[in-house]
Each structure stands twice: as C-alpha cells, then as structure tokens.
Nucleic acid binder design. Structure first.
Lengths: 337, 337
DNA sequence: ACGTCTTTTATTGTCGCAGACAAACTTACA
DNA sequence: TGTAAGTTTGTCTGCGACAATAAAAGACGT
C-alpha cells in the first residue's frame, strides 16, 4: 500500500539506516546522500509509519483526555486550549467523553492503555479509583488531573482556587450593596462545586449575612439545571436581590428563566456567574462572572504532563490557579439602607 | 515496563500463539488452558499493545477529525456526536483544531498520515486541495467531508441542505407577516454561508420582497461577528422588522447588541437563527431557529466512513440532510398592513 | 502395534523502524 | 607504503503481536 523505509533506501541506493538518519537528523550524513534520500522520499510520497516507530522507541506522542462532556462550554474551551498546547508540543490529543458513565470511563481507560498513549489528562467525575491507581502504580502511566478527578499521591493536580473565586463573587455583590444573596450551585460531590459552596458560606458568614435555607439550591452545572434552579428560587416566598450561580452555563439557563418570568436583570435581580465562558460576554445583559484562567490551566497541565513523562517517578504536585472577577452588566448597585 | 504476550505465555506455560488466540477468541482453545491464560494475563495486568498489533494488522482503529474550531458551539456539538459514534464503533477520535490556518491543517494532515489513522473526518475551511487529493489518491486514505471542506470525486460528502433551511427561515418570517427582512450571514467562501445566502435571496424573490442592500451583511459566523453585524444593521437609516442570522453564535452576539441598544426582541425586532445549538433554547428570549440534524449528521459521517474503510475503492457519494424549523420566542407576528 | 484423523500447541517469519555495533573508505602523516 | 585517525555508511537484531506452517498428542479402527 504505502511506501516503507526500505523502498526509499532502495530507490536512493543506500541502507535503511541512512534513510532513517537523514529523516530524523540523528547523525551526520553527507550532503549529497541526504539529497538523494530526500528526493527518493519525496518521489515515493513516503510517510514514515509512526506505529512502527512507536513500537521501537516506546512512546506515541499522543495524550488521552478524559472529560465528562465537551458539551459544557467551559470544558469545550478548556479542551480547545489543551489541544493548542498539545499541537505546540508535537502531541496528538485523543478525545474521550465519558458522559459521566463509569462503564465508558473504564472502557476508554483500557483503550488508551492499549494504544500506549504517553499520558492521560483527566477531567471527569465518574471514576473508578482502583483502576486509575492500578494504571499509575503498575504501568506508571503519567496522569494529570484538572479541575476534578481521582486523587492519588502520584498524580499531579492542577486546579482553580474556587473557594477564593466564590469569595470574590460574594464580596463583589456585597460591595454593590446586596445583602439578600442566593446561591445555585453544582452537585456537591464534585470538588469545584463543593469549594464554591464553601466559599459562598464562608464569605456570607464573614460579612455577617444570614443565609436563607431555601435560597441555596443544589443543581447540576447544566443549562437546564440553571433554569430549574431559578424556577425553584422564584417560587420562594421572598426573593433575594442577587444570586451567585456556580457556573456560566447554569447562569444562562437561570437568566433565561427569570427573564421569561418578567424579572429584569439586573434591576430586580443581580446575577453573578463562574467560569467566564467566552459567550458570557454576549448574554443580555452581559454576565458579570468569575474568570478561571483557562489558558494558564491548559498550559500548566501540558507542561506538567510533559515534565512527568520525562521524569516519571516523582511526588505528585498540586498547582492552584487564582481566579479573578470580571465585571460586566448583570450586577446592579443597590442603595444600602 | 509493561508485560508482553510472552510474559503471559510463560506464566501460563503455553505458547504466545495460544495466548493470542484466547485473548482474541480467534480459534478454539481447551477450557482449562483458557483459564490459565486468562489468569496469567490478569495477574500480570496485561494490556496488549495496540501499537504492535496495528503494525501487524494494518489498521489502528482511530480516526482523525479536522475541524476549524471547537469553540463554535455548533462544531462542539457535532464533535460530541461524532465522538459518541466513534466510541460505539470501537474507534478513537484524534481531535485536530486547524484554527483556519493552512499551516496547522497541513501539519496535522501529516501527523495523522504518519500515525496511520484509518480515516479522516474533515470539517474545516482552510485547506490545500493538492495535499488532500494526494492523500486520497496515493495513500487511498478514506475521508469524509462534513459541512464544508475540499471536494474530490473520491471523498464522501455529507451536508445539510442549507438552501432549504434558509427558505424555511424566510418563509416562517413571511408567514408571521414580516416583509422588511435583513440578513447577517457568514463568509461567502464557506459553502454553508453561501447556500444560506442563496436560499435567503431566492426565498425573498419568490415572495416578491425587496432586498435592501444595506440590510444584507456578511460577517464571520462568530459571536463577535454577530454583534458587529447587528451594530452595522442598527446604523441603517431604516430598520427591518426581522433579521435572519446565518448561525446561532452570531444570533447570540446580535441579540445581545440589539438589546444593549434598548431594542426589544421580538417586539421591535424578530430574530431567527440557524443551527439550533443546544443553548439557543436558553437565550432571552429563546431563539427560533433552523435545526440541523447533528446527530444524524454524525451518524451518517461515521457509518459512511466505516463503509469506506471496509470498501475503499468506490465513487464518492454525497448525502444531503434536511433541516427543519424550530419555533421558540424570538419571532413575533406582525399585523400585515 | 500401526496408520489415520482430529485436536491442541510450538516454531518461525513478518510488519516498519531505530540504533548498537562495526565495517569501509578517506585522508594525513611518518 | 603503512598505519592511525577521521569520516561516512551498512549489517543485524529486536520492539510486541499475529498467523502460516509444522509438530505433537490423543482417539480410534483394524
């Protein structure tokens, strides 16, 4: 079917070694020989087989990425950044959506192991700790966990400081004069949701603000969940003046629902989100939110990954990234009474 | 590092052949032997090397996907569906964002070729026709083009009938009593943009409606482009009563911009989009739009791909999918005068 | 006991490439 | 002209799995 190194060698009148060396620039070859080889390769439209090469050199220059779902815009943006970094470093990215299913996660983990990817980026919620640790322990497969995922002494973790982010959000609301603050968050078993919740509670406490029980709602980080959360909130006997929503996707659903009920944002209800997804600048009104440094996150994930590939046996480290507030128009100032 | 088939054979006290056969179930092996092998594999945590296997059997069970950018929610959703299908069929998906750069496209094409992917899904705008056709012609690499991409007699194309979709959109506006209709579309060198534009023109003509020159705006299919397009539209001396926007991302930007200028949607301006991205149900107001059957598109792409992998030499076929209207709340009825 | 089947296992070469090792071929200088 | 040093290229083995072929072990009839 396609030309092999042997064909090229034959056509150039040299040995396969020489061909290999000129193609990989791994030792000196006389200029004229080089040219002959290059030309032969060109003429035959030769593309070296990475699979044969991988078998020999024991690396594949590809990474697997396990992610719950790229339907969530935040993940989509993160994947995008990760892909960019991979490209820059000469790696391929194998995208694996787990859809939160253990079955699919395990199955992908097996596939990736067999395909001998050089490492796995993990950003998913349903997982099988024992499987992961057997991969890390026995096969010594490099793994870096972004956002959330299994914990282990030997994986690197790199995450957003969501407690701080939640503080930022609440403090901003308070500075704008809000006292009656609600919260719609993600499922508490996911780390970032938990952290944002904790941050919310802490910040409220520090400001001596009461937390009304039916104003804190646990949802699912999805559009529809935000919508439902808002509906629930609107059914409360008294309404808050502001709501902190655990991610931008839910914020979108929530705003849509509120506006459908004739509530004006931000005049009647201020909204602050989390993630700073690209599109949150295009909500009506544009969403004030907490920015996660997605580009940095991806860069750090990949550079950590590569470092670990080159130097496998080392303690796992944990890197924390600092979020920041981005003010747009979904939070109104309230006259402090 | 990791166990090989030989280790398993040794431990089970059989030959590698036997191991291979019990693992692949490719011929009968005595039950007791099977058990011994399985147990040995289990104990060694054996994972067969797909790279060695691929070298021998000449397929990799992975597909490459070239896409301009997954930042666009429509592509993100499509990639998601494609990934699902791949998983179902036992394939891995290598994600390649080209960012519209020829350089990156070519570079990825080379990588994918070397990695010996079994086929390539193409959905990108910047391409090098000669490179593609050399891949198809010489290496006989299966390729299916979704949405837009290079044309060739030997690639399969599967696309949305965007002319029809545009008709659907315009007819809906007309049925709701609109006569003053504007258009904000994508770059005309992209096939879907061209088709939607043509459909728009045709439908307007068929309804004997005048097309006001400064009401047709060519933009870029991105959020920001929609915003800019709307700004331009709003600067016109007279305003339309409705606008057809070439995709949902632009629709979002456009609606945000219009609402920022105090224009009420749909009371003062009706908006209809294209794509039916997941989140368009959560705009305020929820977006009336043309639905592209993304799931079908992905399914057809993959099944066509697999068919072509199994049966390489055949004429390229072209499959057209029919869009449909989904009515939400961004188009208001207008009293026909 | 012998040959003939059938069932089960072993041997070996192959896929395409890389690299350890080494050979051939120059040139320089005694 | 011989030898050491330097330059350039080649031979050969093995990565891990698969499969074609060969071989061994039972089963059975005569």
């Amino acid at each position: 079917m396609s030309a092999t190194i042997k064909d090229v060698a034959l056509r150039a009148g040299v040995s396969t070694t020489t061909v290999s060396h000129v193609l990989n620039k791994t030792r000196f070859v006389a200029k004229t020989t080089q040219e002959r080889v290059l030309q032969a390769a060109e003429e035959l439209n030769y593309a070296p087989s990475a699979v044969a090469r991988s078998l020999k050199v024991k690396n594949t220059k590809s990474l697997g990425m396990l992610v719950t779902t790229t339907l969530n815009p935040f993940f989509a943006e993160l994947v995008n950044e990760v892909e960019k970094c991979c490209y820059r470093e000469g790696y391929n990215l194998v995208l694996c959506n787990t859809d939160g299913e253990l079955e699919k996660t395990n199955s992908y983990l097996r596939m990736l192991t067999q395909k001998r990817v050089d490492g796995i980026l993990v950003m998913c919620s349903a997982y099988d700790d024992s499987l992961f640790s057997s991969l890390i322990g026995q096969r010594n497969l490099p793994m870096v966990v972004m956002d959330w995922g299994p914990s282990d002494d030997y994986v690197d973790r790199i995450q957003d400081n969501s407690v701080k982010g939640a503080h930022l959000a609440i403090r901003h609301l308070i500075e704008q004069g809000h006292k009656r603050i609600a919260y719609i968050g993600g499922p508490l078993e996911k780390l970032p949701a938990k952290q944002r919740f904790d941050g919310f509670m802490e910040a409220m406490e520090q400001a001596d603000l009461a937390i009304q029980d039916d104003w804190v709602i646990e949802s699912d980080f999805e559009f529809e969940g935000g919508k439902l959360g808002m509906r629930q909130l609107l059914s409360c006997s008294s309404l808050p003046s502001a709501v902190f929503i655990g991610n931008d996707a839910m914020a979108m659903g929530a705003m849509s629902e509120a506006q459908l009920s004739g509530i004006k944002i931000p005049q009647q209800l201020s909204v602050i989100g989390y993630d700073n997804c690209m599109y949150s600048a295009y909500f009506s009104p544009p969403l004030t939110t907490i920015n996660q440094p997605k580009e940095r996150l991806a860069e750090l994930a990949i550079s950590t990954m590569i470092e670990r590939i080159e130097n496998p046996r080392q303690e796992g480290k944990m890197i924390m990234l600092e979020p920041n507030l981005v003010v747009r128009s979904s939070v109104a100032a309230v006259s402090t009474k």
